[in-house]
Every structure is written in structure tokens, then in C-alpha cells.
Amino acid sequence: MANYLVMIYNNEAAWADADPSVAAEVSQQHVAFAQKHGHALRGGARLGGSATATAIRHTGEGTTSLTDGTFAETKEVLAGYYVIEARDLDEALAIARDVPARFGGVEVRPIIPD
């Protein structure tokens, strides 16, 4: 068994423009997802918007610089994540297909064990 990080990328502008009923609907979809795949879920959360992000860049020589915003400026930003446990990538992908991501999609990455 291995753990996988499922990152939910959404188009923030589309999300902001959507009708409030959509938010309720998506929230319901997450509940349904958690019920269906609860046995595989090891964690997960919704994140604040990209406007709340702060990037810390290591500039070398032991110094860092703080900038406002995410690392990459893209239309789709990381909106939330799940950590799931699966036998292999195929099983992880089968679960990740059910993750609600109405305004974008998800990216699946293996979590490398210590």
C-alpha cells in the first residue's frame, strides 16, 4: 500500500462567479466522496484562495524572500487536497476520478515514504 496526494486544482474566477447553490452542491459531492472512499482517506482539507498564499523563496546564502501569491501564476490553483491510501496507481486514480473538481481537475502524486 502507498499513500497518494490528490491535489484539487480549480479555476478560482469560475468558482467565484458561480451561483451560491453550486458551492452547496460541490460540498455535498465532497461528503458523498468521503462516504464512498472513507476507508482509503487519510486526510484532506480545503485551502484558502490563492490571494491568501505567501511564497517563501530560498535565495541561496541562507536567505529567504517573501512574496505575495502562489509559486506559479496559473488560472487553476490548488484549492484543496486529499491524502488517500491505495494499493497502486490504478487504484489511486480510480478513487481520484471521484474527487469533485467542478472547475478544474486533480493531480495525483505518490507520497514518498521516509
Binding site: A2, R87, D88, L89, D90, R109, P110
Partner: peptide
């Protein structure tokens, strides 16, 4: 190896 791509013939649904 790292992502755990399985070494098997996929099931009938896939």
C-alpha cells in the same frame, strides 16, 4: 516504481 504503476493486466472495466 515511485508512482506505483502496477504490473498487471487491468480489470475488465478498464
Amino acid at each position: 516504481a515511485e508512482a506505483g504503476i502496477p504490473y498487471r493486466v487491468p480489470g475488465p472495466d478498464e
